[in-house]
């Protein structure tokens, strides 16, 4: 058993070095494909921070002053509910100060200065309004009414703030997803080709192995390990690249003026490690699939 394992590892390594250029191409392509996958996931997550306020078709947010009395809050609530031809009352949501503070932690993740000025006491509470109508003018005129109610600090409209970004993030998501799928397929193909070439280069050896009674698995495993290694190396490179990208972005964002919204476009480090782990798994799968196809297809040399 030990003899077999050492054999497999030794052959994997030897073959790896023999085909250095092809191997480099395969590794590089998987790295780029996986980097794109990782970047997509990060961008998506970053936009989610930005759009967290506007989840679930919310198009208007009525901010209530932190010092508003319970009577004033009740009055705002009933005023919104009266507009039931325009507002979807079922979906009306009230976030008290604590809940709003939790939400703010995500919005201002890259803007600790602003966040430090906020406390669960001085933060406004908010009503999230989902309109029934498709007509933005109606929503806008309603927002003007609410703005003048006692206790209301401000009314924000999705249209003014993040409509564009939301559409943009959708678009980026689709484009990067398609690109990464295409690149992943290319990576599988390149690994397949590398392994096929490696097997062709060693066809005499494989012929002798078959004649002296080596099992197919014994012949295959070093090649499959080679492909797996290529995928994993690509993933490792991609993880490094993603880490560098993310650090540069996070540092860059920290220099922005607080409160510009851009500052919420960063991700927590826990999420980053999660993405890296899934990239490693994906890389291993890409390598294993590519080499397994090659190894089962081209064994009869």
């Amino acid at each position: 058993m030990i003899a077999r394992i050492t054999y497999a590892l030794r052959e994997t390594w030897a073959s790896f070095r023999r085909n250095l250029t092809l191997t480099a191409a395969a590794v590089l392509t998987s790295a780029i494909a996986l980097l794109l996958v990782g970047t997509t996931l990060l961008i998506q997550r970053a936009f989610e921070n930005l759009l967290v306020q506007w989840r679930g078709d919310v198009e208007m947010i009525v901010f209530v002053r932190s010092d508003a009395s319970p009577d004033q809050i009740a009055f705002v609530d009933s005023s919104i509910r009266q507009a039931d031809t325009i507002v979807d009352v079922e979906k009306l949501q009230y976030l008290d100060k604590t809940q709003t503070y939790e939400e703010a932690k995500r919005i201002f993740i890259g803007d600790p200065v602003t966040l430090s000025l906020l406390t669960p006491e001085n933060i406004p509470s908010q009503f999230k309004v989902v309109p029934l109508t498709e007509d933005p003018a109606l929503v806008r005129s309603l927002s003007e009414q609410f703005r003048s109610l006692p206790g209301v600090e401000d009314v924000a409209l999705a249209e003014d703030e993040f409509q564009v970004i939301s559409t943009l993030s959708q678009f980026i998501r689709v484009v990067t997803l398609v690109m990464s799928i295409v690149l992943l397929i290319v990576a599988v193909g390149l690994i397949w080709n590398t392994i096929r070439t490696a097997m062709f280069a060693r066809r005499r050896e494989i012929e002798v192995m078959k004649l002296v009674g080596a099992t197919n698995w014994f012949i295959r495993i070093p090649f499959m390990l080679e492909g797996l290694l290529q995928g994993l190396l690509g993933a490792l490179a991609a993880c490094g690249g993603l880490w560098v990208l993310n650090s540069a972005w996070t540092n860059g964002v920290a220099g922005f003026k607080p409160g510009t919204g851009i500052s919420s476009l960063i991700v927590p480090s826990g999420f980053l490690s999660g993405v890296m782990l899934s990239m490693l798994i994906l890389g291993a799968i890409v390598g294993a699939v590519g080499s397994a196809i090659a190894a089962s297809r081209f064994l009869d040399v």
């Binding site: 054999y7 002798v208 009674g213 080596a214 012949i219």
Partner: peptide, 24 residues
Amino acid sequence: YKLLLNKTVFENVAFALEVIGKPR
């Protein structure tokens, strides 16, 4: 002959045992 040119005489013969999993 079908010998493996990158292996020595010893290695060529040992190869036949190695690939059927014979211990060292």
